[in-house]
């Protein structure tokens, strides 16, 4: 058992993860993260537009991939972040895990929306249609619906700390289901149409991999920056709520 007894000094992780302490140390990271994000985006976009050739199969539309692939990657990574936070919330009942879960949900929804939107705009010139019930697109769409459901779920709770554990349960049920959904959709897809169109097996020379990887790094940095700022404001929001509540309680104490 790794559970720390209350008398023992908490380990370094739980000390860093205490909301108040988190506010202190994360304050030093926000500005460097913003700068790193901007620089990486600058380099990535320069590569994407000025220093990369057109793909011999996709042509110039390969440039859409530099946005589409990072966001498709984020759509899954953000859910992984939420699932890990959900475990933290359920097992250790850690308030920072609740905050992390809540801050990640709208970000994941937005990145998934970008992935879908750019996917559609890439599909029109490449496949001749905005939407194709392709395995990946369909499971991304389902993932988007799950994000929207989670955002809606967060908004229905008045007492956020109580809602967190319920939402953590649902987040984990979703995390277990995502691979199954992916499998079932892929299976369904091969059943209904012999895969004429596939993004697999496309060769990727270094001239395309470089901007792609830089853009993936840039979007990942963007997520972590926004996530950190959103977590900080959620902690502040809870603090303000508590102060208001205490203030009202004190007032009622005085008058009575």
């Amino acid at each position: 058992m790794t559970q720390t007894a209350p008398t023992k000094q908490p380990n370094w992780f739980s000390r860093l993860a205490h909301p108040g302490v988190y506010l202190n140390w994360s304050a030093y990271l926000v500005v460097p993260l913003i700068i790193a994000t901007i620089i990486t985006f600058g380099i990535g976009l320069w590569f994407a537009f000025f220093n990369s050739p057109a793909d011999y199969q996709m042509g110039e539309t390969v440039r859409i991939m530099y946005i589409h692939v990072p966001n498709a990657w984020l759509s899954q990574m953000v859910y992984a972040v939420m699932a890990v936070s959900a475990i933290g919330s359920l097992v250790w009942r850690h308030p920072l895990a609740d905050v992390s879960m809540k801050a990640a949900a709208p970000l994941g929804a937005a990145f998934t929306a970008i992935a879908l939107f750019t996917g559609a705009l890439w599909g029109r010139p490449t496949w001749g249609t905005f939407w194709e019930w392709d395995g990946r697109m369909t499971s991304t769409l389902i993932l988007f619906l799950m994000y929207v459901g989670l955002v809606a779920l967060w908004s229905t709770f008045n007492d956020q700390s109580k809602g967190a554990r319920t939402i953590a349960v649902f987040t984990l049920v979703g995390a277990i289901n995502i691979p199954i959904i992916k499998f079932s959709v892929d299976w369904w897809n091969t059943l209904h149409q012999p895969s004429i169109i596939s993004t697999e097996g496309l060769s990727m020379p270094a001239s395309i991999a470089t901007p792609l990887l830089i853009m993936m790094l840039a979007f990942t940095l963007l997520f972590f920056t926004l996530h950190m700022v959103a977590m900080r404001s959620e902690i502040l929001r809870r603090r303000a709520n508590n102060l208001e509540r205490r203030h009202i309680a004190q007032k009622m104490d005085v008058t009575s």
Binding site: A54, G59, E60, T61, R63, I64, I67, H68, N71, A110, A113, I114, F117, T118, L121, W122, R124, P125, L222
Partner: peptide, 20 residues
């Protein structure tokens, strides 16, 4: 030169930029 699909390419960059 972004070729014949310039609207789709710029559209996805602008759309993504708007959401971000």
């Amino acid at each position: 030169d972004l070729g014949p699909h310039i609207l789709f390419i710029l559209g996805s960059y602008i759309g993504a930029a708007l959401v971000v």
